[in-house]
């Protein structure tokens, strides 16, 4: 049974993102706040892309994980402002993305290097990819296509 905000954060850190299971919801930066008021727990979430179908699954996964840890009185809230940006992804999350084969977002607007062979010779195939948050790139050295988590 989780009782403190820190314990709730620890549970949420084990809940994977439904589309990129290599990182947790905490790594992704979509958990805005965790607050106990007596026995009522309020968790505030923020969407990544407004139309991302994962948003509803994320809310469901949060609910299931917390109920599994004994939380009975739970309220989920959505907060839009300030809007989620890729800056909310944690450093640990960025490292996990790269290890998983997805180039983490860069301020310059393109991947720093190929996540597989680390070559800097990369080219954009399309600004849109397998999920709303990704673009398709290709490595000119190892020739592998890869996902790039694009900046918003």
């Amino acid at each position: 049974m989780v009782a403190t905000a820190a314990e709730v954060w620890a549970v949420l850190a084990t809940v994977p993102d439904p589309e990129i299971p290599a990182i947790s919801l905490v790594d992704l930066g979509v958990i805005r706040a965790v607050e106990w008021q007596n026995d009522l727990l309020t968790v505030t979430l923020t969407p990544t892309y407004s139309g991302c179908p994962a948003t509803r699954v994320i809310a469901m996964d949060v609910e299931v994980a917390l109920r599994d840890h004994g939380v009975q009185n739970l309220k989920l809230e959505t907060q839009l402002a300030p809007p989620w940006t890729t800056d909310w992804i944690s450093d640990a999350g960025r490292a996990k993305l790269e290890a998983y084969g997805i180039a983490p977002p860069q301020p310059a607007g393109g991947p720093a290097h190929c996540p597989l062979c680390k070559s800097q010779a990369v080219e954009r195939i399309s600004q849109f990819g397998s999920t709303p948050c990704k673009a398709q790139w290709r490595c000119q050295t190892c020739l592998e296509p890869f996902d790039y988590f694009k900046c918003i």
């Binding site: 892309y49 407004s50 139309g51 991302c52 849109f128 709303p132």
Partner: peptide, 20 residues
């Protein structure tokens, strides 16, 4: 294929905006 994916993602973003 790339255009198909781009159009589907554009539609998805727009429906997200419509929901809001």
């Amino acid at each position: 294929l790339e255009e198909d994916i781009a159009l589907a993602n554009t539609a998805l973003d727009l429906i997200g905006q419509a929901q809001m």
